[in-house]
Design a protein around this nucleic acid. Sequence first.
DNA 1: TTTAGGG
DNA 2: CCCTAAA
Length: 498
Amino acid sequence: MDHEAHTRKKFVNMKSQRVKVEDSFGPALEDESETIEHLLAEPKTEYVTVDGVLCFDKENAEKGLNMEDFSCGYDFGLNTYSGEFRSAHPRGRHDELELGVLDGLLDEVDEVEDIDAINGLASPCDDYLLDIGFIGQASQLGFGPCEGSRLRNSSSASQSPGLSGSSNSAVGISESSTVTIQEFECKNSSIDKAVTHGFHGNFRQKKRHRTPIAHPASINLRSLDELDNDEKPSVSGIVSAAFLKEKRLRKPTRRYIEEFSGKKSKDSKGREDCSAVTATENGRLKARSQTKNHHQRPRTLAAVPEDDLISENQTLAEFRKQRTRRKKYASISMLESDESDESYESDEQPITSESEDDSVSRKRSTKQDRRKHQRMWTPSEVTTLVDGISQYGVGRWTDIKRLLFASSPYRTPLDLRDKWRNILRRSCGKELKNEARFLSVEQKEMRALPKSLVPRVRELATVHPYPRQRGKKFAPPILPIASKSASSDHIRRYVRRK
DNA sequence: TTTAGGG
DNA sequence: CCCTAAA
């Protein structure tokens, strides 16, 4: 009795902490399962997890699929979990421990996905991992060493041996289970699909279920669609659960169809390397959601690793394009190791990251990926740029980059050009205009180009009317240098501009 | 692949 | 900074 109450309370706390929702749970719930129901319903992620897994489990049992390792490890997690909660026997002696651990686990996760959780629909991946971990915990605690060991076995069967040692600590178990999931995910795509599907589908359907395995492709698409639409409904759990279900039925976007028509033929196992770099990718939306796996290493899966990389490269031509460009410039100058940050670091993310590191990077990548870190132009840089322009001419951005900015990989020729454009705009047009009104004097100083440069800039500006100069109508018609041939051009410009 | 322009 | 069209 006491335990029950205590349990509930703890859970409520836990949930509200994680989802940051006012707990609307009824104060007194008759039986345990009821309680669980509510708890799960609120932050629909858990709910989904359980359902999905259960379904999956059932599916496995019925179909007798040959996914031993996965279904094994997973089943246990699930069975354990559901059993634990439905049994209405919180098992006094485990209560404290369990809750503690769960709490801890959630905390841990919370750190990782903080904001996402608030948004109601945490990014699927996060949930994914979270839930796995959660289940792992539950199983471990609920059933004690027995189940724990089984779980461990299952995971160790397909996973690196190191994890099998963590039989006793709850953390160890959860970790191993998590790893197992990831493992199989990159190992067996069909399973992956099925599971993903299960996770995001079947909200209220405890008994009936679709046949995930039967149509891996469609499922995959659908679940990916889900991933794609990470516009997170900021609704409370219950509502969004329904909403999600609704959304689930939407047909996948064209992009996904295209993208995975090629991919699914080859088992889309590891998507690691794309995930990390999503920051710079064009189709950012989708890739971001894949950040979950990006740390899994090839190691145990001798069979697959290359394959997926290839498919990845094939499908992400754009991305590759960008990346190669960056790499090129990176190779130009390897110095300034600490300056070449995100952009490059992300390239080798899969290698350096660990399980823990994983969460950190994931957080980061989900956050700031809209723009690649904006870097202020230092006066010296500006000087260099102007130097380069006067030296090599306007428009030779690549040359200038290569020769003068070789040491700053983050400045692409494009950046140089943009900067020049800005400089010009400022130097010729109304110098200060209105833009800097809110800036302090210091800031203005900082922002304004070095005085020594102004004359040069002006000079260059007169020589090379870069964009269509609006401000510098000082010497527009004259153009001492280019009298005839170019003058017509300029005239045309002026005409057109107006 | 690089530049130019527009956003 | 980002994106695209042109070259």
